[in-house]
């Protein structure tokens, strides 16, 4: 699953560790989510979407869409 987390995080000027702290996960988790290697759980996806003020479908999208 692709996502816009890196782009949105950079726009906010947050580090990966800072974003992780804001949603309660490790920096490694954010790295893995940003590279698309790890798909977050629904609660974490909601937390991320809420943090960026977006709907989940605006933050995450299936490959190729």
């Amino acid at each position: 699953m692709k996502n816009r987390i890196r782009e949105l995080r950079s726009a906010k000027g947050w580090s990966q560790a800072e974003l992780g702290a804001r949603v309660g996960v490790s920096r490694q988790a954010i790295i893995a989510i940003e590279t698309g290697r790890f798909d977050p759980s629904l609660p974490l996806a909601f937390k991320l979407a809420r943090l960026f003020g977006l709907a989940i479908e605006d933050l995450f999208h299936a490959d190729g869409n």
Binding site: G24, V25, S26, Q28, A29, A32, I33, F38, P40, S41, L44
Partner: peptide
């Protein structure tokens, strides 16, 4: 104690 990524 780990987050969902560590557990996975």
């Amino acid at each position: 104690q780990g987050d969902e990524f560590v557990r996975r």
